[in-house]
Design a protein around this nucleic acid. Structure first.
Lengths: 224, 224
DNA sequence: CGCCTGTTTGACGACAGTCAAATTAGGTGG
DNA sequence: CCACCTAATTTGACTGTCGTCAAACAGGCG
């Protein structure tokens, strides 16, 4: 279903200007991708690991009948490209123009620093995956959407944007496939949240303001 | 909600006889636990990592209102006890009498071999978590149950039991909390599978035979 | 034997999915 | 700049799967 033919995909698409600190001094090679580009597809030879430097990517799997589940959304600092076999089990696609740093498996085996760094990152990603499984298994549609909004808000805070605006760097379909819902349910839920002033629609369809984080947190049923 | 008081829990309960190869030569300390015992609880000081040597454990989180989600089921060879903060975010409980090997964080930092070994394990666990998120987000009740049965069957195969019998080392409630369903739905689904001869009830309520793995795989909608 | 826990089955309801149509946004070319 | 086209989003009506509530049943142990 996902052949290695896909490797041909666009490893140097048109790219907005971006600058990064200390990028030349780091190991690995940089990979700049436009919006909605694949870094790799399920079935590709899993010879590389990636660190997201800027932007965001999603990892997803697709069932034979077309159902899709986004299993991870990875922001700067996060790792993707892990595989237990010798091919990737998931596809990796950018949500926005992104820069990835790619490391050969052999390169990693040789570097202690790299392995340690990756190990640390994986711990926090595992924890986030656990959170997300709670969402998928036990939360209502509204709670899932609120949980995602809070997560995105947190990411922006960390990135140094202290505003209460939250950018949704995903289409409704992508959100739905991440939250285990349909796009219609995501729409309805966002509308409902807006009607009840838990969020306020921004200028853009992919931007919201959160007037009261505490109230949103309650609606998300977050213990975290 | 989950205080460290719980540390008092039963770290030396009655134990059936078990023997392990080369256990004395390995680092870390052994922890023998009876059925339904906690190795740690959410909120406990996260100073240790565990490897399951025999038996099986589940990791779960509980929401304030009591909803529970089992986020991982870990079989021999698997790792648990990872934490991104300084306390565990999940609870770890045995599904059956089990032996864990526990390592101090400091012990791991000092050992390359240990870190490498753990890293490898984590890759396959991440992959299984991805699989499970597909179940939770996109599969029907029946597909989830079939997927779990297949997974358990695989585990038994690896453990060297080439029979077609599958032991369910979990109560219906635990299965439900793992699959994001209710125990009633799990019951009904198992009954339905049995009626349609996709599984055959064993002597024990917690044992099934799988007459035709291929048919079960189709019912599980597995691409893997 | 009786109690307790776990499992099974049934009746009913609700939350989210499906199907469909309307509306909006974004991008392209004249 | 505007018209047009396509993709994305929103909303509505209806359906179905699974959850809820409840009761019966089975098994293990004192």
């Amino acid at each position: 279903m996902f052949g290695t033919a896909a490797v041909a995909i666009d490893h140097r698409s048109a790219q907005p200007p971006m600058s990064f600190a200390a990028q030349s001094s780091r190991p690995g090679t940089q990979l700049r991708l436009g919006k909605h580009r694949s870094a790799y597809l399920a079935g590709d030879d899993a010879d590389r690991l990636f660190e997201v430097e800027s932007g965001a990517v999603m990892l997803y799997r697709i069932l034979d009948d077309g159902r899709r589940q986004v299993v991870e959304v990875v922001f700067p600092g996060g790792i993707c490209g892990l595989a237990s076999g010798d091919t990737y089990a998931s596809c990796c696609e950018t949500l926005m123009p992104s820069v990835l740093r790619s490391f050969k498996k052999s390169e990693i085996d040789r570097s202690d620093t790299l392995r340690t760094r990756i190990g640390e990152r994986l711990q926090s990603q595992m924890s986030q995956m656990h959170d997300h499984m709670v969402s998928l298994g036990r939360k209502t549609a509204e709670e899932r959407v609120c949980t995602l909004l809070l997560r995105l808000q947190e990411v922006e805070q960390v990135a140094g944007k202290p505003e209460c605006a939250v950018a949704l760097p995903m289409t409704r379909t992508e959100i739905a496939d991440y939250l285990g819902l349909t796009l219609e349910t995501v729409c309805r839920t966002l509308t409902s949240l807006a009607r009840r002033k838990l969020v306020e629609a921004g200028s853009n369809k992919s931007e919201f303001r959160v007037p009261n984080v505490t109230r949103l947190r309650q609606a998300a049923c977050c213990d975290a």
